[in-house]
């Protein structure tokens, strides 16, 4: 459902404050990142919310606070460096923009474009690219492939987000698979399909210290190691 721009204009502030109801989040985010005026407004607002964040009174830490954090850290173990099995699938939903910036807000937009079914039947690759550029302008790992396909992985506070455009449908019985390389060792991050040439995947446990990313075409369900040449890879 496309409401007039006026309706969204008044929601930009609420969006940046994290005050949009979860059900409407995708739609509002979608508009904001596709609309230059609203995007500029959102950027301006998020400067203010950053200031609000730092306006709180500091509270002295109770004794043993740092020890307690480290104890919890030891209990849950170090960050995993290997993903046990491919995680398939579709987009999950950010309930709220992460405060660390408008780029994360644009990430929610990508989700809105695909996950919430607001993709305009006439919408073209160009607009998605614009959104993905806004998403990844100065952060994350960029991947390029044939025929202008591209992808980006951006880390978030609860995992990572991978978005790709320009990929054709994989052949029947095959799927795309995203790999992270540490030195030369590949680890599977996700398998995914595409919808109108686009894909967005949320990765729950991305490895830290990734040197490179690549996407290959694999049999349905994914493989243990890449079995074909990458269709897309980071520099």
């Amino acid at each position: 459902m496309d409401r007039p721009h006026e309706d969204y204009r008044d929601l930009v502030a609420a969006y940046v404050l994290g005050a949009i109801p979860p059900d409407d989040l995708a739609e509002v985010a979608h508009h904001i990142a596709s609309c230059t005026t609203c995007l500029e407004q959102a950027k301006a607002h998020s400067g203010v919310t950053d200031e609000l964040a730092l306006s709180v009174d500091p509270v002295p830490l109770p004794a043993g606070f740092a020890d307690a954090v480290l104890a919890k850290a030891h209990r849950t173990g170090p960050a995993p460096t290997e993903i046990a099995e491919p995680t398939g699938g579709r987009v999950l939903f950010f309930r709220r923009p992460v405060m660390s910036g408008i780029l994360a807000a644009a990430a929610a937009v990508i989700i809105g474009v695909l996950g919430a079914g607001f993709l305009d039947a006439r919408s073209d690759l160009h607009r998605s690219r614009q959104v993905i550029s806004a998403l990844t302008a100065d952060r994350g790992l960029a991947l390029t492939g044939e025929e202008g396909s591209e992808g980006h992985m951006v880390r978030t506070e609860d995992g990572a987000l991978f978005a790709a455009v320009g990929l054709p449908e994989p052949p029947a019985g095959r799927t795309y698979q995203l790999w992270a390389f540490q030195d030369e060792t590949p680890t599977s991050l996700a398998t995914f399909g595409v919808e109108e040439g686009e894909a967005v995947v949320r990765i729950e446990d991305p490895a830290e210290g990734v040197d490179a990313l690549a996407v290959t075409v694999e049999p349905e369900g994914g493989s243990e190691r890449p079995s074909t040449d990458p269709v897309m890879r980071s520099a």
């Binding site: 960050a79 780029l103 952060r139 506070e157």
Partner: peptide, 12 residues
């Protein structure tokens, strides 16, 4: 601790 990569110094 678990996701230091989530912080992007260029963003703030």
């Amino acid at each position: 601790w678990r996701r230091p990569g989530a912080f992007d110094p260029s963003r703030g």
